[in-house]
Amino acid sequence: MSTPAISIRNLTKEFAIPFKKERLVAVRNLSLEVPEGEVYGLLGPNGSGKSTAMKIVLGLVTPTEGTTAIFGCDSRRVESREQVGFLPENPYFYKFLTALETLLFFGKLCDLRGSALKDHAYSLLKTVGLENAADRRLGGFSKGMLQRIGMAQALIQNPRLLVLDEPTAGVDPAGSREIRDLILQFKSQGITVLLCSHLLGQVQEVCDRIGILHHGSLIKEGRIEDLITLENQTQLVLENASPALLAELEKRAREGGATVIGEGRPKADLEQFFLRVTQFNS
């Protein structure tokens, strides 16, 4: 088997609480692996240790116990960050830089330069839909635009792995759908993605596998279908069915040994409705 994009082994992180004896355990004996090419979602309520785990993977925070590695390279080594792009939670960048300058700056930090860097920066701005804001300073950017420049910045050195901390937090539905589409696009290019979120609907649409963190411990892990499919139930959606037909179906079901446990009209979810209405009027 090839080296996993991310491997976390028996990771524990404790924070000292000022003026108190006991310590806060942010991550508790966490072990997980993300194979190359997979989109992995880390779920959990606020304060469950998602961001802390990600920062340890990126070498920004030192673990109390355990090890983490990116493509087999220990996170404590600077080289491990050659292959990874990171979008922090609520990303802030230098407000005095324009979008283009920001990308050039981060590119130079990855030892890129010259016209190749510039061309790449422009193409990334196009990818994230900021080509018209290239020369605007980030000080005037909205939350969604910052999130997008954060994505572009993470991609500047063409990494094989993306680590995204709450990529859609605080972004409007249209914006978060674009971010979701971007993630799907990266996945089709073979980029491994580790993302964390508490917005379950979106995770469901992009992730191959999820893990659920609770108080720092991984309490569930697996493929989404396996986790949430109710194996012994089947859903049937009909259009223009008459009451007589429904009664007939129900009778047949009983004869066949099945129980009808629910009946109703499916509704488009609010997000879909919102998107349809706003797109129609724009």
């Binding site: 920004l60 960050r81 922090p88 802030y92 960048f93 981060f106 930090l109």
Partner: peptide, 13 residues
């Protein structure tokens, strides 16, 4: 501002 995170997440010692 956490700009430090973004910088040190690049291969910058």
């Amino acid at each position: 501002d956490r700009t430090l995170y973004t910088i040190l997440a690049k291969p910058v010692p």
